[in-house]
Design a protein around this nucleic acid. Structure first.
Lengths: 330, 330
DNA sequence: TTGAAAGCGCTAACAG
DNA sequence: CTGTTAGCGCTTTCAA
């Protein structure tokens, strides 16, 4: 293999094949008329030289790029990888590549990411939620590209939005617990100022309780990001301070932590304490007692977001709903 | 906001500021000498126009890109998001962006991804494992860029490798069980032809048992990718066929599934059945009985891979080791 | 059906 | 310290 480290260019291919550059470009892109013999000749040279087209140059010369920028809050919460798993195949099939950034639930960081991703002139951009800094919103609008906001439908979107109503999910959780007869209800969650959507669920939950004449009996907000560990600790702290018969967790990670605490502490679930989570993660669904939770269509949200991005669908909000899964914990 | 959808270019900024293009470029890149007054003038115009530099053009004009391509087998297994979480900050700090592709544990797909990522002329490429198709290897070598293979040190690397020995991890698991006095040992895992590293762990495990004069008493290989559900089913099937006192799982997802099965079926752990996993996931560490498992330094592997990529370190294998965590299940 | 030539927006010498 | 001038590798008219 005596390849030089300087990559082979289209010009090299053209020279070697004895044709013009535009002809090589035509066969490579399957666009425009090329005779069968010329095409064969070019393809042979491409294979022989191991030529890999330079997409950077291609993108600059043509109008749009085949890059889609995706900005998500976290990778530790499996919810986001799940969404990426939905996005991936749709984009691949259409010949797009995704550039991913992680904002760590920080809107200033999200803004910085928007700026740096826009510098790659992506064909479109996906980001989580409907709330962004003013500067991010301005840049997004000015960019003129398609924007899809995912995982939330409670509010006004920039362009396209695909998700479900977090307020409604919180409300449904409250209705379920109330319907089951629970009255001393507590909450364990993370920092709302960072996870806005968890805050919306909480809002819907508390409001629905209030409509039923019930006040939240206690709550524990953990400073750290949602995790099994903080759910476990959070429930322990909450129970030390308050008498409860049911607890709503901001998500399934926290809820499973709570479930583990109950199991370790010998608290009978749901007889002495009912637990309800959010997301419908595998770990919750296959636990010895399936967790009562709300299944959110994450893969579908990702796939639909990608599909819409590539379409010329009019701006609008697409609500994909959610499903309350009655398990054995509430 | 009367921005046109045609983006503002560096030329626009230069004209508006009344300076040359290279001067604008200099202040933007903080490179080369520029007087304070000129810099201020240019920065004002940049802000006023909301100019976002076009990295595509920048990359084409300069030598290298600031993209790093990352190809991982999956996003469903939290191991890979964990690695990305380690990679992210290091790359960000250095001003690099990552383009991510998911191979779905399919080497042909990995090969295709290598080709399409190379088309973006990344500065470097990260991929999992030491085994790749011949074509992928050839492309990688010919590209002349830095390559980091992660998560495995059992073999020969292309350039840089960062990970741990899967064979040794399997061997350590076997030694632990044997030392504890278990003799009727089974295995539950996924498809080795796809997950090569799980196969290496299995190899180390079985070989170490053999050295102790023990044959694997039974095994269950699941066709589907590793998951809590398949671990749960796998253990159920295995126990239906064989009398065992300990089971080794290819990873913690599977092991937690097994743990859930045992709990649901009323099997005393570890008295009647010992369980051991691999990876040290949160779900395993915070279960009511902490799972005995091997903690793998995933974040550190990601961070170190990124650090090496940006360095001019000589080719070589970096073994970051692992740690057997004695829990309450074996 | 094919080739020549003019950029895409930026960086990088090279003068001044 | 600053401006001019070539390209980077490809796509895309426009002629032939």
């Amino acid at each position: 293999m005596n390849e030089r480290s300087t990559a082979i260019t289209l010009t090299d291919v053209a020279r070697e094949a004895g044709v013009g550059e535009s002809t090589v470009s035509r066969v490579l892109r399957n666009h425009g008329a090329v005779s069968a013999s010329t095409r064969a000749k070019v393809e042979a040279v491409v294979a022989k030289l191991g030529y890999v087209p330079n997409r950077i140059a291609g993108t600059l010369a043509s109008t749009g790029s085949r890059l889609v920028a995706i900005i998500i809050p976290s990778l530790s919460n499996i919810v986001f990888p799940d969404i990426l798993t939905g996005v991936g195949p749709v984009l691949d099939t259409a010949g797009y590549q995704s550039v991913i950034g992680v904002s760590d639930y920080d809107s200033a960081r999200e803004e910085a990411l928007v700026a740096s991703m826009l510098a790659w002139r992506p064909a479109a951009l996906i980001l989580a939620g409907l709330e962004h800094t003013a500067a991010a919103t301005t840049m997004l609008r000015a960019s003129g590209i398609r924007v899809v906001e995912i995982l939330d439908t409670d509010g006004v979107g920039l362009d396209l939005a695909v998700g479900y109503s977090n307020r409604d999910a919180g409300a449904a959780s409250a209705r379920f617990l109330v319907g089951r007869g629970y009255r001393n209800i507590g909450y364990v969650g993370g920092d709302f100022s960072r996870d806005v959507r968890a805050g919306k669920r909480y809002g819907g939950f508390v409001e629905t309780l209030r409509e039923a004449g019930i006040a939240l009996a206690g709550q524990q907000l953990m400073p750290h990001p949602s995790s099994i560990e903080s759910g476990k600790q959070g429930l322990a702290s909450l129970l030390a301070a308050t008498e409860l018969d049911a607890v709503y967790f901001s998500n399934d990670d926290m809820a499973i932590g709570g479930y583990f605490h109950a199991a370790a502490a010998g608290i009978a679930v749901p007889e002495r304490l009912a637990l309800i989570g959010h997301n419908g993660l595998d770990v919750a669904r296959f636990a010895p007692q399936a967790l009562t939770t709300i299944l959110t269509p994450r893969r579908r949200i990702g796939a639909e977001a990608a599909r819409l991005l590539l379409s010329d669908a009019p701006p609008g909000i697409h609500d994909l709903g959610f499903e309350l899964m009655e398990g054995a914990t509430a």
